[in-house]
């Protein structure tokens, strides 16, 4: 488009400046505060950069910055490293479970007659529109010791009434919660990859005597890989920082970094340590995030 007008630049500038001010700048502030020390003041950290105090004072504030919060977070004496590790582990296991659960569903949907596909798609998206909190909450009633699952198992005589299954407040409950809440995010990219697939490829394979299972591994699976990557990243990255699910379904021994950050911030009231935790979490996730961005940019912008 050769048309140049101020309107054209406004369309670019408004969202650009908005995201700079409310997405990028906040990260710089988090980074700066992660290098500060806690103080009993408002705001509860120092140094506070104050340009009005003059250049000398400004320079002096710089020398007050330190990496103490990082050495605190990265020391083996504290639980943080363990929390990062167990968050990555829980998110990783959940992502694999999601793929195992989501793939057959997406595959079935892509095989379904064209006329019912939009309905199936809507049925997958519908739970996503209902509140995340509600969906997690629903599982408390099911998994608790006197909950519906135990009642059912007792009624069926599978377990005895005085020994109900302890699922709530364990990591198993966290896995169930993550798989349940993130399932639409896994199914949708898988479905869109599988739906685009050309069926004649499978027909050709069958004609040439390839058994269906081998055809699946040689044709369907490789062609669905973009969907697999997109789905896995879409689930894995937010799951690492998950807070609500481990808090409501997990036990006291469920260690996840999102919960640790929250506790550090709202219970221990250390803004500087929680900032350091956030910066390190971001550093752990930066590679998958960049990978996801590229995938998304290629998919959405059609480049």
């Amino acid at each position: 488009m050769a048309v140049k007008s101020s309107g054209r630049w406004l369309v670019l500038a408004v969202p650009y400046l908005w995201l700079l001010a409310l997405f990028l700048v906040p990260f710089l502030i988090v980074f700066k505060i992660s290098l500060s020390t806690d103080a009993i003041a408002q705001p509860p950290y120092e140094p506070v950069f104050d340009l009005a105090a003059g250049w000398e004072a400004f320079k002096e504030s710089f020398s007050a910055l330190s990496f103490d919060n990082y050495s605190y977070v990265l020391s083996w004496d504290n639980e943080f490293i363990e929390a990062y590790g167990s968050s990555l582990w829980i998110a990783g296991v959940s992502t694999i479970l999601l793929l195992i659960v989501g793939y057959p569903i997406a595959y079935g949907m892509a095989r379904a007659p064209k006329s019912i596909r939009p309905t199936l798609l809507m049925l997958v998206i519908l739970p996503f529109w209902t509140s995340f909190l509600i969906r997690v909450y629903a599982w408390i009633g099911i998994l608790s010791p006197e909950g519906l699952l135990n009642q059912l198992l007792i009624a069926l005589g599978i377990i005895s009434p005085d020994q109900p299954l302890q699922i709530l407040a364990t990591n198993t409950a966290v896995y169930i919660g993550i798989v349940y809440s993130y399932l639409p995010f896994m199914i949708l990219p898988l479905y869109s990859a599988l739906e685009k697939m050309d069926d004649t490829l499978l027909e050709a394979a069958a004609d040439l005597g390839c058994p269906p299972f081998a055809a699946f591994w040689k044709i369907t699976w490789p062609l669905s890989l973009p969907g697999v990557f997109a789905g896995c990243l879409l689930c894995f990255i937010p799951a690492v920082g998950e807070f609500v699910i481990p808090d409501l379904l997990g036990g006291s021994d469920t260690l996840m970094i999102g919960k640790v950050l929250w506790t550090e911030f709202s219970v221990n009231r250390s803004w500087t340590v929680s900032s350091a935790v956030a910066v390190l979490l971001l550093m752990v996730l930066v590679i998958p995030i960049v990978f996801y961005q590229n995938l998304q940019a290629r998919e959405v912008e059609g480049r």
Partner: peptide, 16 residues
Amino acid sequence: MVYAPLVMPEVITGLS
């Protein structure tokens, strides 16, 4: 900046 918030853990966005 457009794609990162889609996957950014909420605790980080909220804190920042």
